[in-house]
């Protein structure tokens, strides 16, 4: 169950999944610029851009409701700043902050949901992102599965010795969780040392090599152009009509 949540993009298959990750990142960049620079007729523009993103989700066969829910993850952060703007008397800015961050997050989720992380990291590398940072991200992703597995085993072991669920039990579990977190970090550290030894044993000298280099096809250019154009046209149309 936990694994399935983490590994969603790796197991899907839709028309957007086959596109080169660099094309998706280029289109995403355009979408984010269009969203972040919108200022006139914000309500109509936001509605038009939301429609484009939802259409994108439908085309890519990404569950729309799930995507809308996932995009809301950004709200706790932006609501805080929006509240500050609202208290300062700038209601328009507060609304713009919430709407733009939500739409940006929806666009990012659409790319993440249709691109396996390794392909995304390679695309970022080709755009000049620091290689070391990307390597760390790759390992974090890989070992999330190991760490969630360790954590799940620890939770099961704790529950097996902890009596029946209830308020008192939940309190105890919270206390135990703090200690368990320390153990989890220690186990993860030991695991990291083992992984490093295994890498050295196979000749690792500080740089992860890629087996394949992705090919940028005409269909990828077409995808990036259409996705970018759709967003720009949606914004211009909304601004003209209001």
């Amino acid at each position: 169950m936990r694994r399935a949540l983490l590994d969603l993009p790796a197991r899907r298959s839709g028309p957007m999944d086959g596109r080169d990750a660099r094309a998706k990142l280029a289109a995403l960049l355009v979408v984010l610029v269009v969203i972040s620079t919108a200022h006139r007729a914000l309500a109509a523009t936001a509605a038009a851009l939301a429609l484009v993103l939802i259409a994108g989700c439908l085309w890519a066969r990404v569950p729309v409701l799930a995507a809308l829910r996932r995009a809301a993850v950004v709200l706790p952060f932006t609501l805080f700043f929006a509240l500050a703007c609202w208290v300062a008397g700038d209601t328009a800015r507060a609304v713009a902050l919430v709407v733009k961050s939500y739409l940006s997050c929806l666009a990012v989720w659409l790319v993440i949901a249709t691109t396996p992380l390794p392909a995304l990291l390679r695309a970022l590398e080709s755009f000049g992102a620091p290689r070391f940072l990307l390597m760390v991200a790759q390992f974090v992703y890989r070992y999330l599965f190991v760490i969630t597995g360790e954590a799940a085993r620890m939770v099961d072991a704790a529950e097996a010795r902890g009596g029946s669920p209830g308020r008192a039990f939940r309190r105890l579990r919270f206390r135990a969780a703090a200690g368990a977190l320390a153990v989890l970090f220690a186990r993860s550290y030991a695991r990291a040392a083992e992984v490093h030894r295994a890498m050295l044993a196979r000749g690792f000298h500080g740089r992860l090599q890629n087996l394949e280099s992705p090919h940028f096809r005409p269909a990828d250019v077409m995808f990036a152009a259409i996705a970018s154009l759709a967003t720009v046209v949606a914004r211009l149309a909304a601004e003209r009509l209001t």
Binding site: P116, L117, P118, Q138, F139, R142, Y143, V146, R191, E194, V195, R197, A198, M199, A201, R202, G203, F204, H205, Q209, N210, L211
Partner: peptide, 24 residues
């Protein structure tokens, strides 16, 4: 290694098996 999870860290099986070869 004893625990194969320590040894398998690349995104796909083929990439993992090729890891040592690319390092060489």
């Amino acid at each position: 290694f004893q625990d194969a999870d320590s040894q398998l860290f690349m995104p796909t099986v083929l990439e993992d098996v090729a890891f040592g070869l690319l390092n060489c």
